[in-house]
Structures are given as structure tokens and as C-alpha cells.
Simulated scan of single mutants.
Amino acid sequence: MKKALLVIDLLNDFMQEGGALYCGAAARRVIPVVVEKIKEYIAQGLPLIFAMDAHDPDDLEFLRYPPHCVYETPGARLIPEIAQVIEEYPFVIKVPKSRFSAFFRTNLNNILRDLSPELVEVVGVCTNICVLYTVEELVNRDYKVVVLKDGVASFDENAHRWALEQMQSVLGAEIK
């Protein structure tokens, strides 16, 4: 089966203590799950797509959230646990994004159209923000979507559970 793994925002500012928008211990717990899934994809020669928050220093989003993931800063980089695993893998596609959905003003739609996966598996943070809004767009483009429940997290456990329920019951994504 042709499939792609979409990894959302596993970046230092979200995943590391002291990061500008640190998502907490729940986010740290997804790292081993995501690393294992990445290794599985690498072993099969399958595409890895990294949706990566990347903002200009004066981004208007900073009126709502503290500055985070500013271009070319350490906070905007993939966490070391992932960067090391993918370092020499040639089928890595990085998609910088500046809003919740990984489709907003990015080339993700074209990338997926070219790859034409039968399945898109999704992991990352935050479940109720960037994961949810990206999954909504995937579903609206008629992709079969599986969200790995142990591979997603949020700083807000209630919102995390709510988003998983919405993705399953409203959007029809499989929660696995």
C-alpha cells in the first residue's frame, strides 16, 4: 500500500522544556512512538513529510501566542531525537507552515498529489490545534487518514480527547 507519514510540529519550541510553547510531558511521551513509526517508514522506503511551524519575527499569530518557531532559530528545528533518525534518509520532505493547517499557503497539497498515497498516517502536536486542522483538510481532500493516538498530544488533555473524538466521529479519520 502506498502511504505517507505526516509528522506535525515535533519542534524544539513545542517539545523541549523551556521551549516558547512547550506542550508538556504528554508531548514528550509521543517521541518514542513517533521515532519507531519513522524507523518503520525508513525501513520500507516510504515518504516522511514534516509539517514544521515557521514564522517571520513579526508574524501576526504572535498577537495570540508568544513568539515561537521563528525561521532559522533553534526553536523551529526538529527535536534531536527525530533529526538524528532522519539525517541520512533521502525521502524526507519538509513543509514550513505559518498557520494551524499544514495546507495553508504551503505546497503540501501538491506534494500529496504527486505521492498519491492511499493512506496518510498522522502524528504530532497539538492534537486539538495543528493536528486537527490538518486532518480536517486531509479528509476534505478525500485521503484515508489514520491518526496514531499514542503519537499525538496536547498541553490540554481534555482538548486532546475532544479533538480525537471529532476527528473520528465528524471527520471519519481512523484513530488507531
Results as ranks from 00 to 15, higher is better:
residue 106 T to M: 09
residue 106 T to R: 09
residue 106 T to K: 05
residue 106 T to L: 11
residue 106 T to P: 02
residue 107 N to Y: 02
residue 107 N to W: 01
residue 107 N to T: 11
residue 108 L to C: 02
residue 108 L to G: 04
residue 108 L to A: 06
residue 108 L to I: 05
residue 108 L to S: 01
residue 108 L to W: 10
residue 108 L to K: 01
residue 109 N to C: 01
residue 109 N to A: 14
residue 109 N to K: 13
residue 110 N to S: 11
residue 110 N to V: 00
residue 110 N to R: 03
residue 110 N to K: 04
residue 110 N to P: 00
residue 110 N to C: 00
residue 111 I to K: 01
residue 111 I to P: 01
residue 111 I to D: 00
residue 112 L to F: 00
residue 112 L to V: 00
residue 112 L to R: 01
residue 112 L to P: 00
residue 112 L to I: 03
residue 112 L to K: 00
residue 113 R to S: 11
residue 113 R to H: 10
residue 113 R to D: 03
residue 113 R to A: 07
residue 114 D to C: 09
residue 114 D to S: 14
residue 114 D to A: 12
residue 114 D to N: 12
residue 114 D to W: 06
residue 114 D to I: 06
residue 115 L to K: 09
residue 115 L to R: 12
residue 115 L to N: 10
residue 115 L to D: 06
residue 115 L to P: 04
residue 115 L to W: 08
residue 115 L to E: 07
residue 115 L to M: 07
residue 116 S to R: 08
residue 116 S to T: 13
residue 116 S to L: 03
residue 116 S to P: 00
residue 117 P to V: 05
residue 118 E to T: 09
residue 118 E to N: 12
residue 118 E to R: 12
residue 119 L to M: 04
residue 119 L to E: 12
residue 119 L to K: 13
residue 119 L to V: 10
residue 120 V to K: 11
residue 120 V to Q: 12
residue 120 V to I: 15
residue 120 V to L: 08
residue 120 V to G: 10
residue 121 E to K: 13
residue 121 E to A: 13
residue 121 E to Y: 05
residue 121 E to F: 14
residue 121 E to C: 12
residue 122 V to F: 05
residue 122 V to E: 11
residue 122 V to D: 03
residue 123 V to T: 13
residue 123 V to R: 03
residue 123 V to P: 04
residue 123 V to E: 05
residue 124 G to K: 08
residue 124 G to D: 04
residue 124 G to T: 12
residue 124 G to C: 12
residue 124 G to N: 11
residue 124 G to H: 09
residue 125 V to P: 11
residue 125 V to F: 10
residue 125 V to L: 14
residue 125 V to R: 11
residue 125 V to Q: 07
residue 126 C to W: 03
residue 126 C to F: 09
residue 126 C to G: 03
residue 126 C to T: 14
residue 127 T to F: 10
residue 127 T to E: 09
residue 127 T to P: 06
residue 128 N to F: 08
residue 128 N to W: 02
residue 128 N to A: 14
residue 128 N to M: 02
residue 128 N to D: 15
residue 128 N to H: 15
residue 129 I to V: 15
residue 129 I to Y: 11
residue 129 I to E: 06
residue 129 I to M: 13
residue 129 I to Q: 05
residue 130 C to W: 03
residue 130 C to V: 02
residue 130 C to K: 09
residue 130 C to Y: 07
residue 130 C to M: 01
residue 130 C to G: 14
residue 130 C to I: 03
residue 130 C to L: 07
residue 131 V to M: 02
residue 131 V to W: 02
residue 131 V to A: 05
residue 131 V to R: 04
residue 131 V to F: 08
residue 131 V to P: 03
residue 131 V to D: 02
residue 131 V to Y: 04
residue 131 V to L: 07
residue 132 L to Y: 13
residue 132 L to M: 08
residue 133 Y to H: 15
residue 133 Y to T: 03
residue 133 Y to K: 10
residue 133 Y to F: 15
residue 134 T to Y: 09
residue 134 T to L: 10
residue 134 T to Q: 12
residue 135 V to G: 08
residue 135 V to I: 13
residue 135 V to S: 07
residue 135 V to E: 05
residue 135 V to K: 11
residue 135 V to N: 05
residue 135 V to L: 13
residue 136 E to I: 05
residue 136 E to T: 14
residue 137 E to C: 12
residue 137 E to I: 08
residue 137 E to K: 15
residue 137 E to H: 15
residue 137 E to F: 09
residue 138 L to E: 08
residue 138 L to D: 09
residue 138 L to M: 10
residue 138 L to Q: 08
residue 138 L to W: 05
residue 138 L to N: 05
residue 138 L to Y: 07
residue 139 V to G: 01
residue 139 V to N: 01
residue 139 V to R: 15
